[in-house]
């Protein structure tokens, strides 16, 4: 199976606000799929449907179908689902605990043996390209790291529970350009083992890292296709306007 995520006729509401309208989308395994679009068009709503994060919001409801590797997420316990689908947020949000504890927390609540934790912490930090910077200070408070380091820590934390899919919601928008490019490189490394969906406001970033791109506008998916095609020969006028910076 090459499909990691498949949505059919996905609609979402915050109370009466219709935030997503009939989204049909397929995310392929081991690919990076970017979601672009002006502010408020429903990008975050979409990816937060995938790991049922929005179920925590009062008044939020969905209709339609979301399949993760062929299985309807309505039939999966949200807690188990979120173990399989990691998420990295716009603003780095480490726990106010030690670096070690930040990474070890996830595996520990999923019942991983104490003896294995050390090696999980090390391998996760290595995958997130942070190990060399923090290996001598694992017991320091994570709040003391720089913003870019904190974001990579959050990526390592997500990796530590062994997800198959990772959702990134504007992971670089709070970071300086150098930290941002580190995270871009990291994502390209990660796609060998993981399937990635990234929301971004940065066109160059979408063009650089992603394999496919979806353009959202006012809750609808206007265009979805190969990243090269979207950026070189968009089929829709509004897509072209958006990526050339004529609005949004």
């Amino acid at each position: 199976m090459t499909e990691a995520i498949h949505t059919t006729n996905l609609n979402a509401w915050y109370g009466k606000t219709h935030a997503l309208k009939n989204i049909d989308m397929t995310v392929e395994n081991n690919k990076i799929t970017a979601i672009i679009g002006p502010s408020g068009c429903g990008k975050s709503t979409f990816i937060r449907c995938l790991n049922r994060m929005n179920d925590l919001i009062d008044g939020f409801s969905t209709e339609g179908e979301i399949l993760i590797r062929g299985k309807d997420i309505k039939d999966t316990d949200p807690v188990a689902l979120r173990k399989k689908i990691g998420m990295v947020f716009q603003k780095p949000n480490p726990f106010p605990k030690s670096i070690y504890e930040n990474i070890a927390y996830g595996p520990r609540i999923h019942g991983i043996n104490k003896r294995e934790l050390d090696s999980i912490v090390e391998s996760s930090l290595k995958k997130a390209a942070l190990w060399n910077e923090v290996k001598d200070r694992l017991n320091d408070n994570a709040m003391e790291l720089s913003g870019g380091q904190q974001q990579r820590l959050c990526i390592a934390r997500a990796l530590a529970v062994g997800p198959e899919i990772i959702l990134f919601d504007e992971p670089c928008s709070a970071l300086d350009p150098i930290s941002a490019s580190k995270i871009e490189d990291l994502m390209i490394d990660l796609k060998e083992k993981y399937t990635i969906v990234i929301v971004t406001h940065n066109m160059q970033q979408a063009a650089r890292v992603s394999d496919s791109t979806a353009f959202f506008l006012m809750g609808e998916m206007i265009e979805f296709g190969d990243t090269k095609q979207i950026f070189k020969k968009p089929r829709e006028k509004s897509t072209e306007d958006y990526i050339t910076g004529r609005f949004g």
Binding site: N51, M53, V79, R82, K83, G86, F95, Y105, R157
Partner: peptide, 26 residues
């Protein structure tokens, strides 16, 4: 902050784990 709760839920914590391990200590 909501972001701490989200971080915890996103790792697959239950509500009780989130409250017990993150919200209450903070």
């Amino acid at each position: 902050p909501k972001s701490i709760r989200e971080a915890s839920y996103a790792l697959g914590s239950t509500k009780w784990q989130t409250v017990r391990h993150h919200v209450l200590p903070a």
